[in-house]
Design a protein around this nucleic acid. Structure first.
Lengths: 193, 193
DNA sequence: ATAATTTGCTAACGAACGTTAGTATGCTTA
DNA sequence: TAAGCATACTAACGTTCGTTAGCAAATTAT
């Protein structure tokens, strides 16, 4: 009967690898380390995967997919740039808080991707960052936001949002939604009264 | 005659290592990679250094020293928390922008330190972060700042400041001081008008 | 019942890793 | 001029790396 409980070995491998890559880094995690966590021999891993890098690719591009998926609904009919930024921040943070380990790998280990994956990855990142820049531009044009350097501001905002993976604990008191709201509020309104 | 121009081999090694560690990560940089950049054999490195990790230790703890050194002057006689935060942000960002490569190593590679260095490092980080928390607490107590979760706010602010190493180009138009001012302003006043 | 798939093993490959030993050369200092 | 230090070499060490080949058992699908 048990539905959704059975996971095939490949999924297990990717899950454990995500944890290890997060804790030790991709380069410092050996296939023998990974095998040991799963209770098998290193060579046995290759019955399920093609290479070590394939695991990293899966993690990185699955996260990218999730970020783009979450973006849907951000640029809806509403016209306020602040509301859009709020929505975007919440959507973004929700993805991170629901995948803290995979997010850490996504943010820190992507440089170990080889071509053409690396190029694809960077192109997606550019695309994604461009969406935040557009919101900022809109806000400036409409007079909602201060006149700022859009790229600088985008980088600053995203760095705040992206850091979430480093401290968020799912078992803590804050829900992903609440984290997004608080971050969005701090970014939009600042610390001063 | 030439003063301050002559650098001994050990310094050269640390400089080149900083660049490589930044570009490829500590674990993915081999001693043979490093030797090649310097035009010597890998074994020759050991006439100057004790181990690969020693280089990482030097980078990390020199940066830590610089951050603490820069803090002097932040907690001066002035009483406004906003002014203190402004000073702290500028001081912090100045250190980063003047050492972007070493900062990247400092922020991303410290986990490869072994004990007792790792413990020392984390203790220093806690100390440093505590200083930012104190400014936030002061600002809340004095009514200058919104009532916020101090730790959450500290993490968010520092993540913005610390991301600077990833995009700042010394040859660009912004001076370190200007970057600090802009970041501090965004954090304190927010994006909205 | 049989075929196919999943899962795992042992053994081993060649390459790369950090590091040490021992030696040699040239520069700097006493 | 001698001593000492800085610098670099060749050769090699034992270990670990990612990965492949070939085989075997168990499970699943036809």
């Amino acid at each position: 009967m048990e539905i959704l409980v059975k996971k095939n070995r490949k999924q297990q491998i990717e899950e454990k690898a995500t944890t290890l890559f997060r804790e030790r880094g991709y380069a410092a995690t050996s296939m023998r380390d990974l095998a040991q966590v799963l209770g098998i021999e290193a060579a046995s891993l290759y019955s399920h995967i093609k290479s070590k890098e394939e695991i990293l690719q899966k993690i990185c591009f699955r996260m990218a997919d999730e970020f783009f998926e979450a973006w849907k609904g951000v640029e809806s009919e509403q016209n306020s740039a602040a509301a859009k930024m709020n929505k975007a921040a919440i959507a973004h943070v929700k993805v991170i808080t629901r995948n803290t380990d995979a997010s850490a790998v996504f943010f820190n280990e992507w440089r170990h991707l080889s071509e053409p994956y690396l190029g694809d990855f960077l192109a997606m990142r550019d695309d994604y960052e461009g969406r935040f820049i557009q919101i900022i531009k809109d806000g400036i044009a409409s007079g909602e936001f201060e006149v700022v350097d859009e790229k600088f501001t985008m980088l600053t905002i995203l760095s705040s949002l992206n850091w979430t993976h480093n401290w968020y604990k799912p078992e803590g008191s804050l829900t992903p939604e609440e984290v997004g709201v608080k971050l969005s509020n701090l970014v939009l309104n600042g610390l001063k009264k």
